[in-house]
Design a protein around this nucleic acid. Structure first.
Lengths: 203, 203
DNA sequence: GTCTATATTGAGATAGAC
DNA sequence: GTCTATCTCAATATAGAC
């Protein structure tokens, strides 16, 4: 009932929670969570409105499950051994690369997370977990400053905000079927963060 | 009726369009446009719901006027002489700096613009104008690549997206009454874009 | 697991008095 | 320029049959 077993997603009927959530979250991201009615969801699912309640207790529970997927994946990156041990510069590179990859591979769920406004307790709790992740990147930049590998005119807090701003903005334009792979994108972000956009010789 | 004349914004009554819009847009940004009901707006304004209709024909018209403010200010930066003539690197610096300053000084209106989902013709038109601005930054990065001042391993399109991603993310955390001035913030963004976060000597 | 009702609430918007 | 009262519609959610 909770864990998907085998087939799932046919032409029309026979949804399980995960396959239904894919359709639902895509709709949330296109129109916004609040602007997406159960009627629209039912239409896109090819079901009646009431059938949805067989899988989810409420519209907000769909949001809750989706946000959990995004947060679990992001937290795994920031709590991994490569993020908590070793040279600080390597740790920073690891979490930035990992965040880009998670974002690309779980784009719909992360997109939903990044657009929360905190209108309900469930949204507030998700935002709390997200802020905890932000805090971990900031802590890494503080270590970097202390050891002298962060340029001294850059506040760790500003570095963290701008870095995450850049990374998070990727959900707005990355296309899984596009020409750029997540790995290439992660390389571009890391290079920009490391040494900027300018042709090095023109410094 | 359309243009504000003199005083405006008192303790409770006597709103004109602009002073009312300030309150309205703040509410939109806190809860999201769709999740903000006229009832909530009336409460925050200290008015009844129907009184709002003396100033705006509809909820969506409030959005339209607010988006116009943001877009007019941004377009002014990208159409200015400093953005269209002179060395390409200077033009890029000018539009990035200008975008950061406009964003800080018109934060509520720009925030609203950046969160649109395109659910109505009015939203779609605003998104079209916004894409036009994106296109102008991309064109500048293409010129930069052609003259050899953009690092060759960075696609102009990716450079544009990551740069605007970083700039636009500022609406999520900039505080007008905080310790960082818009000018300092613009400097930080420009330095990060130019040469990255690393202590230069550690390259 | 899905359906056809339907209950209930709150939304955006209007009428007309003051 | 603001109010009270009301209209209309669409939203989330439930009941109960198949």
């Amino acid at each position: 009932m909770t864990t998907a077993t085998e087939p799932a997603r046919r032409g029309r009927p026979g949804y399980d929670r995960d396959s239904m959530l894919e359709v639902v979250v895509a709709a949330f991201n296109e129109r916004g969570y609040d602007a997406t009615s159960l009627g629209v969801l039912a239409e896109r699912l090819g079901l009646s409105k009431s059938a949805i309640y067989h899988h989810f207790a409420s519209k907000e529970q769909m949001l809750e499950v989706a946000l959990g997927k995004a947060l679990d994946a992001l937290e795994a990156v920031f709590d991994s051994p490569e993020a908590t041990t070793g040279p600080v510069v390597s740790r920073i590179r690891h979490v930035i690369r990992g965040a880009v990859l998670v974002l690309c591979e779980n784009k719909p769920y992360v997109t939903l997370l990044l657009r929360l406004r905190g209108n309900t307790p469930i949204e507030l709790e998700a935002m709390r977990r997200r802020r905890e992740i932000d805090r971990k990147l900031r802590a890494l930049f503080e270590l970097s400053r202390d050891e002298g590998t962060l340029r001294p005119d850059m506040e760790p807090r500003v570095a963290e905000r701008l870095t995450f701003g850049m990374v998070n903005s990727i959900v707005e334009w990355y296309r899984p079927d596009g020409p750029i792979t997540p790995e290439q994108l992660a390389d571009s972000v890391l290079e920009l963060v490391r040494t900027g956009l300018r042709e090095p010789s023109s410094l």
